[in-house]
Amino acid sequence: MMMNSMKSQFNVTKGTCIDGKWHKNRYLIEKELGYGANGVVYLARLKGTLVALKMSDNGLSVTSEVNVLKSFSKVQGSTLGPSLLDVDDWKTSQGKTYSFYVMEYIHGPDLLKFIESNGSSWTIVLILQLLNDLDQLHRAGWVFGDLKPENLIVTGPPPKIRCIDVGGTTMKGRAIKEFTEFYDRGYWGLGSRKADPAYDLFATAMIFINCAYPSRFNKDSGGLDQLRGRVKQSKLLQPYEQVIVGALKGRYQSALEMKRALLDEMSALQTKKNTKTVTRNAKAANQSAPIRSRSRQHKKSKGGFKETVMLILVISCLYFFYIYGQLV
């Protein structure tokens, strides 16, 4: 068996009809969305609704991913992964059978693109959102595994982080199924590949670092020192150094714990900023004084206009009475 990428392996183009063998649904292919080691994802239409359809010649990797998606749906309130709509087989006109599954179409730019076009102030917001979702997943006994920006899509509005590839999701305590080196704890020599919540938190910290270094970087000396150095050099990351390094070291046992630490760091940062702003305001007080007096003058002139009108009215009233008296 030769492993290669699945690009254009299936003869599926725009307008191809995919008929399900078991559930008899008909999907109309719109275009290819992407491909990876485990299959090709297409945008398709089912009775007018847009859906994402993933097809693979390895039926078992499909089954494996479907199992994960099913377990996702059991995690209450979690919206991290796409919801599963259908699982089926497709028999081509050449007589070959491919397995596929259909999921909700999650539309939007990936994490790094979103931050690039909407500003880096979104970074921390989306990281916090991600931690929240991870916490729910971890509570249900799963670890995401292959967390990386390419797998994270920001939908909206309002912007919400979602994950489109759940192939690496692993039961807690087992060996991580799939990973990408840059986000992998083992690659950096900072821990094992056993699935525990701290594995995902390491990846989250690396995603955070990736936001500041969109083109990533190579491992040189490896280990914590190189990563810590990168965090210190970045304006975006430097305020959160303690939390990021903590996550890299595996200090946090749960996503919630890391989220709280980030929030604490943020509020500490805010108080610092506020004290700075207060002193700045005091200095600026003298400068703003003339502006305020000018506006008072403005108010006075407005009042003067009203007075004039009143005066004219009163006088014309008296004049009217006077004329009336003269006439009578």
Binding site: G59, L60, T63, V87, D89, T97, S99
Partner: peptide, 17 residues
């Protein structure tokens, strides 16, 4: 495994995992 309906396939895959 591929000859089974998709739902049962999932259970078998659990065993493989």
């Amino acid at each position: 495994i591929e000859d089974l309906p998709p739902d049962q396939r999932g259970e078998v895959m659990e065993v493989v995992d």
